[in-house]
Design a protein around this nucleic acid. Sequence first.
DNA 1: CAGTGAGCGAGCTTCCGCTTGACTT
Length: 778
Amino acid sequence: MAKNLLIVESPAKAKTIEGYLGKDFLVKSSYGHIRDLVKTDDAIDTSNNFTQRYEVPAEKKAVVSELKKLAKAAETVWLASDEDREGEAISWHLYETLGLDDEKTKRIVFHEITKPAILRAIETPRGIDFNLVNAQQARRVLDRLVGFELSPVLWKKVKPSLSAGRVQSVAVRLIVDREREINRFTAEAAFRVVAIFHTDNPKELFKAELPKRFTDVAEAERFLTDCIPARFAINSLETKPSKRSPAAPFTTSTLQQEASRKLGFSVARTMTVAQRLYEAGRITYMRTDSVNLSDTALQGAEQEIRSAYGDKYHKRRQYRTKSAGAQEAHEAIRPTYFDQHTIGGDNAERRLYELIWKRAIASQMSEAEFEKTTAKIGVSTREEELVANGEVMRFDGFLKVYFESTDDDDEHEPNLDNDTGNALLPPLTKGQQVQLKRMSATERFSRPPARYTEASLVKKLEELGIGRPSTYAPTISTIQNRGYVVKESRDGKPREYRIVELVGGTMSSLVKTEITGAEKSKLFPTDIGVVVNDFLVEHFNGIVDFNFTARVEKEFDEIAQGMKEWTAMLHSFYGPFHQEVETTTKHADRATNERELGEEPGTGKRVSVRIGRFGPMVQIGATDDEEKPRYASLRPGQMIETITFEEALDLFKLPKKVGEFEGKEMTVAVGRFGPYIRHDNAFFSLPKGLDPLDVTTESAIEIIREKRQKDKEKIIKIFEENADARIENGRWGPFIRFGKQNVKIPKGTEVNDITYEDVVKWAAEDEKKPKKKARGKK
DNA sequence: CAGTGAGCGAGCTTCCGCTTGACTT
């Protein structure tokens, strides 16, 4: 039996460390926390100085008993959990639960997993820091009290099984607030003037823009008209060097943001892929708020940069964290070995690794150097000047490997010639005359604030100091699982914009159409999310305040430094909080976002919207009328807060009969996958953009015929290419006959998109499924 | 599968932060 037992939090870490230490050390993992508050309401005795009841959860029993056995046999137990609040508490829980002695227990910390760092730590052990432990207990108890007192208020005043908490409720609030900002927003139009000039050489083209915008067409038109006889000259020419520096290596939150933007990963996906890379020894720990790199990492990066790109590409940099709540128990996320530019593994692993490698390497590289040129072009008939910008890269530096994206990357606005305006300018001199090739004034609209993506919500939460690297992904899942928020893509609406053009001395104007407001994988609040949020804001503003966490974190820090007593802190918080819970439970009205929209034309019946038993709905008529009220569910994308009277009435126009075809009725309705036509037990999706209310008998027949034709072509194709598979139209729509097997087409699949490979896959899946027993009728 | 639309009753739901695992349906 080994003389020393060393306990860390993560098994992958344990494995690495075991390699650094000799045979005298056995390195084991606690798998995170081993003890937690009991799950019942009596976990904390609030009338007895917040005494806590802890237990070892069932799934941790095996770990604990194993550690207990090993600890008994060891001469010395080294508690090496992370150097932060939670880590200290883990050490303390281990100490208590394993029944350790003071003499044989040592607490050590290190924030990089390297041999020298660990040996140094072992030479400088300390005791458990109880101030830090108390700060963790205060954090834990406060979160439990908030969560377990607030949630029941919601069960009573809104709906059972709902939840509220210090972190999740603020996340929901951010999304609700943003949605309202967007709803309130009115776009302002202005005309942006862009011109293309050339020098005496007609091939030397460059673009210039008017810094100011015109708010109405007449002004824009006058400017262009004034330009017809005008002469244009370079009034001034300025060239300045500029530099761009690389970004810091990844933390959890920045990794999630970049992986979302560059790879399209959800935050959960990023974390599971990163976990696999970590367990395979490819990268350092992926749940971190630190941008720090260890000395060995700095050396590794330096060596790699010098050998792969040359000495002038290297620049040693230390980054400092920006987020206030950072605890920095770990390094930044980086590759374990810098000389491995790529790795094996699946596609997702390879791409995420490459992103991490590039970002870490770039962080130790030189600035990129540019030369920026600004030319101002005078217009002889006007006061205003047009501005042309050119940029030349003199040295690529870190851009050789990595380019950081921004949230706006995908939102480039359409414009006349669709380039960036940062291109190369031709050689110009001051006073030189230039020729106008063409000029345009395009109507542009101001944009509302952007809806949150998962990743941009994480960014915001981190800025506010809310949540931790280990909880960002779970929090995003929680608010979706509770139904407060949905991640959706929504179609935009067409919008017209005007363009005035000046080409070859003649003016023309035209109107174009663009799509605006289309969203891809964005977070939208649901009606229930809105009701819960408004209720919490009204009655518990202190808790869902964006600064609540920052304030209590400051107090936790004071506890950690021994400047404040942790139960005193909890007393001063809990007294008023609990009082609010009591009075709200007693006196507050049931929360609702019911709205009256008006009276139904003709009948005069009340039209209202509210959340019903099955979700948001419109009701026409009163519940106690002798004639039963009529109901209709809101469609995806519609909300109680914003639905109009007309939209609400429209919901009752479906399902609608649109005539007969082949002796069978056709009905238009809206289902879960969008609007469809039902005919003879078959379903036909409407083409995008066609309003279900606009469907006529003729257009319905046309849609059915087109779909059948497409299916038929597909059937023929598959049949021709593969004699053993073909699609047939059955009683309930198309199915695939695959040899002797009948294969089901998964829901939502367009028959036209089916490939032979799909069929093979589905057939294999169908085989695996156990045969369902025939069920008798109830 | 293409839509519904409550109301006594019993007991349940719920937090945040560490970490990885998984009886087979």
